[in-house]
Design a protein around this nucleic acid. Sequence first.
DNA 1: GCGATTTTGTGAACGTATTCACAAGTGGTT
DNA 2: AACCACTTGTGAATACGTTCACAAAATCGC
Lengths: 279, 279
Amino acid sequence: MTEQQDATPADTKPGGLDGSRVGRARAAAGALSRAMRSTLPGRSEPRHPPTAAPADQQRSVPEATVARLALYLRVLSGLAEQGVVTVSSEELASAAGVNSANLRKDLSHLGSYGTRGVGYEVAVLVERIEGTLGLTRHRAVALIGIGNLGHALAGYDGFATRGFHIAALLDADPVRVGERIAGLTVRHVDEMAEAIREHDVAIGVIATPAHAAQDVCDRLVSCGVTSILNFAPMVLAVPDAVEVRRVDLAIELQILSFHEQRKLESVVALGRDGLEAAG
Amino acid sequence: MTEQQDATPADTKPGGLDGSRVGRARAAAGALSRAMRSTLPGRSEPRHPPTAAPADQQRSVPEATVARLALYLRVLSGLAEQGVVTVSSEELASAAGVNSANLRKDLSHLGSYGTRGVGYEVAVLVERIEGTLGLTRHRAVALIGIGNLGHALAGYDGFATRGFHIAALLDADPVRVGERIAGLTVRHVDEMAEAIREHDVAIGVIATPAHAAQDVCDRLVSCGVTSILNFAPMVLAVPDAVEVRRVDLAIELQILSFHEQRKLESVVALGRDGLEAAG
DNA sequence: GCGATTTTGTGAACGTATTCACAAGTGGTT
DNA sequence: AACCACTTGTGAATACGTTCACAAAATCGC
């Protein structure tokens, strides 16, 4: 997965200061303002003494596991709807497309509640995973950039179904301001601060064109938003404390293209080898 | 990624044999059409003899590297537009949000063409990366499911800009068939086979509701498509030889939610520790 | 209650990915 | 030509992630 994985790149600073964000030629690395960082206690979470509290296992859930937990949750919801009460690691794993040992290890990170010889209770797992992912709290989302993609996202009900609700739609284009979508009115991006405060927004979703994304991102950060989902095809610079996840459609296609290419090459290589062997 | 990242899940096997896929009540993954698989030569690419051709370094580019190459390409295109001719690993890395050693190692996989003391020529890198990712070939894409998201994808110009072009739009809803979007007419999904043959489609993009996705996927596979980008919120079952990448918006939000949660907890923990220390 | 069977939870082995750190080139300057 | 500042390319070290394999529960049938 990866990829997607680190998300908190280099550089920082919202405001002007180092306006040379990516400057001319080389200024990319430019003056890295390391400001903030003040708090974070070291990030690598030393090992906790064996005296740690027994109940809260959810320290140190590996990143890769987190992504899969969300996936398990999806599969489990489906099972629950079908009235399935218990599920074995083997069943759940194959429905999620992962190795069952991997699944068990993942679940063990949240202080697993399975029963040997039986499996896991679907309801219990759902509850534990939701707790770990923080889905019991209701999280408000602001969506910025109401173009084609923004429209689609605003209308996407997959958000609402799991504790997220879109609380604000923002766009810079006066023509779009005032439009009503999915029960919300599009507001101007300059009202971002109010909108975020009003609805206690925790997550910003950027669906603007690339050229506007960094500015929108900086504004979100300065409003205190520390989690951003970025659909704009570019790398955002943010302070360490802000978590950015990028969804890049063109890159996904390029990765697929690579695999197509490789299949082709291996066919060619096989053919060549065959000829060589035969010649 | 993440993540996002493995994409070719567990199991397979065409025939019955291990019919016990996932059992009854728990039949989440249901009747998986496992057809095909016929060809694939073994997937794990044994080690090649040391006599391998010297020029084609592109065997064994690690998965994680591939994802980043696409990212570098994006950054490099931006630099090229700005007229930048050479770039150092440090500059490029920080613009892409990765470690510079990591970047150099990535580039070394494609038989790097940098100059010590100077850096890389932007144009050369672009060319090498495009070659490695197979972007020199023109790749036709079929998009299935023309709802909100499908519309947005059909209109997204980020596809066209890098060697991909949407060759067919398909939907199961007769109401949508006939609609014209971005110069294409929506055809009925039953015409998939013709459409794919006509345009030599290499990649399928699924933007249908979850309940239709597996069926569409099976059809794509039976038409010989071996690369699929799946936006439907579910795990697709496919033969080993087919590469699936999933883009799941709700899961992205849930991962962000987890990090929000963790920040919160660490604040709470710090507070508690502080009190304990003080008390 | 006991053995057969199932399935969890996890140590250990393995594999992949990232980062460090530095020798070896390169171009520019004197 | 000798030096300096810079930057690549890569071995070695480290970190992270997955899979294996099996002991330790748990249930069931008798």
